[in-house]
Structures are given as structure tokens and as C-alpha cells.
Write a protein that binds this DNA or RNA. Structure first.
Lengths: 212, 212
DNA sequence: GCAAATTAATGATTTATTCAAG
DNA sequence: CTTGAATAAATCATTAATTTGC
């Protein structure tokens, strides 16, 4: 019997360290090729898949932005408070776009982005640095064409290939030359993740149509 | 010489008709398996890939929601106007979540979601009906492990598999039994799309940090 | 009529948000 | 509470309609 294989990837300290190092080094949105190499490299330290790497960077970048927004928001609050005490004409209105949505309540999924002041967040920090060239590809791959059940055979379905190619200028924000990993032979890895979100907290408004 | 191969999928009338029929029939977020079948079926009427089908449903659903929001927004405006004339106590505050962001200007990409009234959109219409079970899978697949160039060989990189499985209750909003397609043998199809968006309208705020 | 110029649709990509495991 | 995973919203970019001046 399988020892309760964790339903999601759990990065080892080494893996995490390497990922963070790369992130600090300037890799924010690795290309598919880069992801391959990173995955191959990190798999030396524990089980890992391409999607884990992809998601990790995705999330890390997003949460960086979020933290930045939050910080700026706080900062602004202070300054605002300061300004209320010492009213000078407003000079940082552009910063409003960085603000945290004031009345967003995490966990209360029907109300968000609703503030009462009149200005809000959703900044466009994207492409602030490291403009990248992207390249997407899809392919369909059927192993045996006999899947009536969805029983974890692991390699049927529509495959989506992310290929975010960075240009040749990899020395963006940080001046670091951004050392690239060497090529690694990668063998296929497949896994399924199941979600049984039929009766869980999703769709909280089944019975009462007037909930939202 | 190639007849200027369109950089993006252009659905034939038949394909469009079938897709719309399925959508009306209740298919909003087809599973990977369904996408395979749909793709195979539609490829009888013209060139098509799985990603096209996936994107089509994604976009169609999103723009449906959008249209609904817009309609409700208009409606609300009228009612609001009405209420200003005949002030009754507020009963549809929940409808605020459906409102269109009042000061969103299409084409003016730096300002959005910014209204001056105090309430806004971004409704969670998902799972309002047809609660679905999802199932994601990734896999990495390297054909020959010799890709230093990204020259359109079409099947390397990280593959992401979307497998949105509908439960057994397919008779959701519309009472229609939602006839499913038969099984088709599907062979792999791959294609590359290139984007050269390095100097185009992206990153409009490189020089002036105070733009947003 | 017709082709350059605008605008509207919509295919494709990226980012923000939410869910939920640990 | 952190964070991996999943989904939807926003955005970008290209194609089709449509308009306009000739």
C-alpha cells in the first residue's frame, strides 16, 4: 500500500534554496526549457515535476508583488495619516494603484475589491522589468486511446506546453549575469491530482440564488 | 510560398456552429477527454487543435459572464435612477457584485477597476450552476533531448493537462441531457506560435515610473 | 467598387484571486 | 499561516467587419 503519497509537492530545503537563489538571481518567469533544466536539476534532491517549478515561480512572483503592494499600502496609510495631520497637496496619487483593497476579507469569498474610498488596487506591475518573449505550444497525446475511466494512468488528455522564452538579454533588473543551468536529460514524469470539490466549500450558493 | 498561414486559429462556420451548440447544450468547461473528442470531431471541418477548443470555451464562458454583468449593470443603473426618484430601502445590494466597473476604458490599459462610487464588480459567478469536479495533470515529455534551438519541433517542454471532469449530474441549468460525442481516435497535433512582443505596446511604463 | 483607416470580435496570454493541504 | 494548486479576470494582439474618401 502506498504510504499516503502527498497530494501535492513538498519541496525539500535544497530545492527551495535553489529556487529562491534563482529567483533572487533574476529568474522570475522561466521558459519551458529553463523549467525542464531546473526540474531535472532539482529532481536530484527529491521528487519534483515541471508543473511544480512552474507554479512555484508563478506563486512566488505573485506573492512578491502582493507583499510589495501591502507594504506600499501601509506606507501610504501612514503618509495619509501624516497628511491629514499636516495637509500638503497630494503628490503620490499614482501609488493608489498599489494599494491593498481595503475591504477585502480573505475567506469571505463573495465580497472583495470593494472599498469605500473610491480608488483601488490591481496594479500593473507586469513587464516592469525583464520584457520577455513568449512562445506557447499545445499538443494532444493519446497513449492507448482506451480511457473510459479516469483512473490515473497519467498521460492522456490535452497537454499544454508553456514555453516562455527569454530574449538574449538576461541581465535585466539585477546586474547579475544570471547563470543558466546546463542541459540535463529529462525523463517523463507524470502524476495525477484529484480534487473532490463537489460538496466542499465551493459553490456556496447552491440553494439560495440570491446569495451574491 | 505559404499563403500567409494565419497566426491564430480561425474557426470555420461548421466548427463554430458545433461549439455554440455544445455550449448552449451545457458544456461550459469541457474536460480534457471531452476536449479531445471535440477536437477530433471538429478537425473533420478544418484545422484545429485542442488548445483552440480549450480557449474557445474559456473565452466564451468569460464573455458570457461579462455580458451578463454588463446587462445587470445597465439594469441596476436604471433601477438606481428609479430609486433616486422613488427612494425605497435597498434590497438588491448583492447585485453590486455584478456591476460593470464604471470607469474602465477599453484601450486605456493603465486605469481600470477604478470607480468613484465605492462599489464594484468582479463577481464570482463560477459554480453558480453545474458544479464540476476538476482534475489537473502535468507531464514532461522530451522527444530526443536535443533542443538547444526552439525551432518548432513541437513536442518538448512542460505539458499541462486540463482535465475538468463533470460529475454524473449533467442536467444542470438547462434540462437538456447533454449528448456526448462518441470516442474518436486522436493523433497528436503540435504547432508553435511565436510572439515578437519585445518592442511593441507591451511594458508602456519603462521610462516613467510614475505612470500608474 | 475598393482599399486605406477605424472599430469591433475574438483567439491567445498573463496576472490576480481563490481554494485547500499541511 | 504558509504555500502549492486551480480558476477566473484582465489584458494583449490579430483578424473580421465596417466606415470613409476617392
Amino acid at each position: 500500500m502506498a504510504p499516503a503519497p502527498s497530494s501535492r509537492w513538498c519541496p525539500t530545503p535544497e530545492q527551495l534554496m535553489i529556487l529562491e537563489e534563482m529567483y533572487r538571481g533574476g529568474v522570475k518567469t522561466p521558459s519551458a526549457t529553463q523549467i525542464q533544466h531546473i526540474t531535472a536539476h532539482l529532481s536530484l534532491y527529491g521528487k519534483i515535476e515541471g508543473k511544480n517549478v512552474f507554479y512555484w515561480f508563478q506563486n512566488h512572483k505573485a506573492r512578491d508583488r502582493q507583499k510589495l503592494r501591502r507594504r506600499l499600502s501601509k506606507q501610504l496609510m501612514i503618509q495619509h495619516h501624516h497628511q491629514q495631520l499636516y495637509p500638503i497637496n497630494h503628490h503620490q496619487h499614482f501609488l493608489h494603484h498599489f494599494l491593498e483593497p481595503p475591504c477585502y476579507i480573505p475567506g469571505f469569498h463573495q465580497v472583495h475589491h470593494c472599498n469605500s474610498a473610491g480608488f483601488l488596487s490591481q496594479a500593473q506591475l507586469q513587464n516592469a522589468c525583464c520584457p520577455q518573449m513568449v512562445d506557447y505550444t499545445w499538443k494532444v497525446e493519446i497513449p492507448g486511446m482506451k480511457e473510459t475511466e479516469k483512473s490515473a494512468t497519467g498521460s492522456y488528455g490535452d497537454d499544454r506546453v508553456f514555453m516562455t522564452d527569454m530574449g538574449s538579454s538576461l541581465t535585466c533588473c539585477s546586474g547579475r549575469p544570471l547563470k543558466t543551468l546546463e542541459l540535463f536529460p529529462v525523463t517523463a514524469t507524470g502524476l495525477d491530482h484529484k480534487k473532490t470539490a463537489l460538496l466542499s466549500s465551493k459553490s456556496p450558493n447552491v440553494s439560495s440564488p440570491a446569495t451574491n
